[in-house]
Computed example of a mutant assay.
Amino acid sequence: MITDSKTNRKRKSLFQYMKQNYMLYLFLAPAIILTIIFKYIPMYGSIIAFKDFSPMKGIWGSDWVGFDHFTKFLTSPNFGDIFMNTLKLSVFGLVLGFPVPIILALMLNQVKRASIKKNIQLILYAPNFISVVVITGMLFIFLSPTGPINTILSFFMDKPISFMSDPDAFVSIYILSGIWQGAGWASIIYVAALSNVDPQLHDAATIDGASLLQRVKHIDLPTLKPMMAVLFILAAGGIMGIGFEKAYLMQTAMNIPTSEIIATYVYKVGLQAGDYAYSSAVGLFNSIINVILLIFVNYVVKKLNEGEGLY
């Protein structure tokens, strides 16, 4: 009886709180509704990953096949190559790309003149607003055998290098171009966090004889540490979630061995070949790996970061 009365009091107080702050919930309602419509309701379609889906029969009319599509993908001859290609692009992109926005933010924080700082930020942020199609076109132009890169290399080499047709060069081109395009924009959140650092801390440290690196280490980095932990967890959680657009546009007949990833494979099998059930199973497999990585990385970061994590 005591437990029931406590539960009733909690429910009553929660109802009173919601009634008093109903405007806040009204502001929150559109985001919740859109999330349910575009994120949760589409999960219903994941059922076709376990069925021999036929558009004529519909989702419920199609025959149930269980984990047959997953088994087919895991035992396919190209599973190892596709999985490792996706993992390489993701891991190398995370390891090489994650520190760059932090370094840029720390460097921008040292620029004292506002006009110069704004111009530098404009240059760094601009690539983010260039579409993936344009970026890929620029790569094909600059790295073509007759492009400016090979023109410069011709002074040192006899033959031009066909970068976009070289499977070994694909990973480097993909990652470096991605860092160039997104690092400046990704540094915004770190620049905003550093703007909250009290300048008196730097002044006091300078008076005490601290060098620039010491001030960055003991003042700036501790300020960024919680933000770095959260963003790293989110980045690691989406480590297998590479968008297919850029990889697909950069693909050529010669670099397929290293450019074929899960996302491009799903696109080709699902939309081009029309095998919707099998492609859904492959996509669901990729999502499950992402969730497992998110939980694991969050656990590790919380252990190393004194309990501070995503959740």
Rank of each mutant, 00 (worst) to 15 (best):
M1I: 09
T3L: 13
M18D: 04
Q20W: 08
P30V: 05
A31V: 11
Y40N: 00
Y40W: 06
P42Q: 01
S46D: 00
S46P: 00
A49F: 04
F50V: 02
F50E: 01
F53I: 07
S54P: 07
I59K: 07
I59L: 14
W60S: 12
W60C: 01
T71M: 14
K72Y: 14
K72C: 06
F83Q: 13
N85P: 13
T86Q: 08
V91K: 08
G97V: 08
F98Q: 02
F98D: 01
V100I: 10
I102F: 02
I102Q: 01
I103Y: 05
I103F: 09
L104R: 03
R113I: 04
K118Q: 11
I120A: 05
L122V: 12
A126D: 08
N128R: 13
V132M: 13
S144M: 04
P148L: 10
T151W: 12
I152C: 00
L153C: 00
L153F: 05
M157S: 09
S172P: 02
W180P: 04
W180S: 04
A183M: 09
S187V: 06
Y190T: 02
P199M: 03
S211M: 04
P222N: 10
L224A: 06
L224E: 05
K225C: 04
I233G: 06
L234A: 02
G237N: 10
I239M: 10
I242E: 13
G243C: 09
K246L: 03
Y248K: 09
M250S: 10
Q251V: 07
N255Y: 12
A263M: 04
V269A: 10
L271E: 00
L271D: 00
Y276T: 01
Y278L: 12
Y278W: 09
S279P: 03
I289Y: 08
N290P: 04
I292S: 03
L294R: 06
V300G: 03
K302P: 04
N305I: 11
L310P: 15
